[in-house]
Design a binder for these strands. Structure first.
Length: 156
DNA sequence: GCCAACGTTGGC
DNA sequence: GCCAACGTTGGC
């Protein structure tokens, strides 16, 4: 069982959108980065859990927990010429991009902001992928120690 | 295969 | 809106 962090711009898809989705569940489509694709295909498994992290917004941070409910399968938006994520190099026989399905487990009692996480960047969260300089990956791995430490902040 | 130009991400 | 970081593209 692995842990992850999923970024999403709230103007595109917020945790409220996820909460309002049928079955509180969605397809995590639109990933167009090879490293992230490989995470999904090679390491992500059903019942893995992930933090939901709004990015590019007033207060980036962790606001909820999702679980993986379906493992990697081809992202149909790569085949749709009318979709902004269309990729002409992809074929149905040889898809290039994958997605997983996630379901909302719960929202946190309070947001744990990026600013707060950064306070532990030199200690408990040293080396956390999210906090590494220049990190732009939309999905990053979270270690078990990072996961439980971050959750311990929730009720503080 | 190199590398400059370009586009995107994402915090501030 | 700015800018640093960094992945991708394409000419050579």
């Amino acid at each position: 069982m692995s842990y992850w962090l999923f970024k999403s711009e709230p103007s595109v898809f917020s945790i409220a959108d996820l909460a309002a989705s049928r079955g509180r569940r969605t397809h995590w489509d639109g990933v167009r980065n090879y490293q992230v694709r490989n995470f999904m295909r090679e390491r992500m498994r059903v019942s893995d859990r992930a933090f939901f992290y709004p990015s590019s917004c007033a207060e980036p941070g962790i606001v909820g927990i999702v679980s993986i409910v379906k493992g990697a399968y081809p992202d149909p938006t790569q085949f749709d010429p009318d979709d902004p994520h269309f990729d002409p190099r992809s074929t149905r026989e040889n898809p290039r991009w994958y997605m997983v399905d996630v379901a909302l487990e719960r929202q946190l009692a309070r947001p744990i902001t990026l600013a707060e996480l950064k306070r532990y960047a030199g200690k408990e969260l040293k080396g956390m992928a999210l906090l590494r300089r220049g990190n732009r990956l939309s999905i990053t791995p979270v270690s078990e120690a990072e996961w439980s430490f971050i959750l311990s902040l929730e009720r503080r």
